[in-house]
Computed example of a mutant assay.
Amino acid sequence: MDPDPDQDLELLQRWRDGDKPAGGELLARHFNLLRVYFLKRVPERPTEDLIQEVFVRMVEALDRFEGRCSVRTFLIRIAQNVYRETLRELHRPDGQFDPLSESLFAISGRRQSSIVAQDQAQQLLLDAMQHIPSDQHDMLDLYYFHGFTLREIAELQEIPEGTAKSRIDAARRSLLREFMSLLGSDAEVWTDDALDRGLTRVRDVVIRGQPRA
Rank of each mutant, 00 (worst) to 15 (best):
V189D: 15
R197L: 07
L182C: 08
V71F: 01
R208A: 14
L50V: 10
Q118L: 07
K20C: 01
P46Q: 06
G109P: 14
L126N: 08
V205L: 04
H91T: 06
F105K: 10
Q52M: 05
L199E: 08
E48R: 13
D17V: 00
D141S: 06
H30D: 05
S113M: 02
G23D: 11
I132N: 06
Q112K: 14
S108E: 09
P99K: 06
E152C: 06
E161I: 12
D127C: 08
I107C: 03
L142E: 09
R167T: 13
M129Y: 02
E89T: 12
I107E: 03
F31R: 13
D98Y: 01
D119L: 08
I168H: 06
G209D: 05
A213I: 03
L33Y: 06
L9N: 11
G147M: 04
L125V: 14
V116Y: 06
E178Q: 14
R45E: 11
A117Q: 12
R14N: 14
P21R: 03
Q96D: 13
G18K: 07
D192F: 00
D138C: 07
L87G: 07
L199M: 10
R14C: 10
D2E: 15
I168D: 09
Q52W: 02
R173T: 15
F179A: 07
S113D: 08
D6C: 00
R167K: 15
L175I: 03
R173D: 15
D19K: 04
I207W: 08
T200A: 09
E85W: 00
Q96G: 12
S70I: 01
Q130I: 07
Q157C: 08
I115F: 01
L195N: 13
V82F: 00
L27H: 05
V82G: 11
A128Q: 02
Q13N: 13
L142Q: 08
I107K: 04
Q13T: 15
P211L: 02
F31W: 02
P93Q: 06
I207L: 13
I115V: 15
M139T: 15
I51W: 00
P46A: 04
Q118A: 09
L175V: 03
Q7S: 08
L26V: 09
F179N: 11
G18C: 04
V71P: 12
L50G: 10
I107D: 05
G184K: 02
R203M: 12
L195S: 11
S70N: 11
L26A: 07
S181T: 08
P46S: 04
V82C: 10
Q80R: 15
V189S: 15
D17Y: 00
Q112T: 15
D6L: 04
H131Q: 14
E44H: 05
N32V: 12
A28R: 12
G184E: 05
T73R: 01
S174H: 05
D6P: 00
R208V: 12
D94F: 02
E161L: 01
I107G: 02
Q123S: 11
A79H: 07
Q120Y: 05
I207T: 15
H146F: 09
R45T: 11
S70W: 00
Q96P: 05
D94R: 01
R84S: 07
L156C: 07
D186C: 04
T200V: 10
D49A: 14
G162W: 01
L195T: 14
D193R: 14
L142S: 10
A164T: 09
F38R: 09
E25N: 06
A61K: 14
D204M: 03
D2H: 12
Q112R: 15
D17C: 03
I168Y: 00
L150K: 13
S185C: 02
L9F: 01
H137L: 06
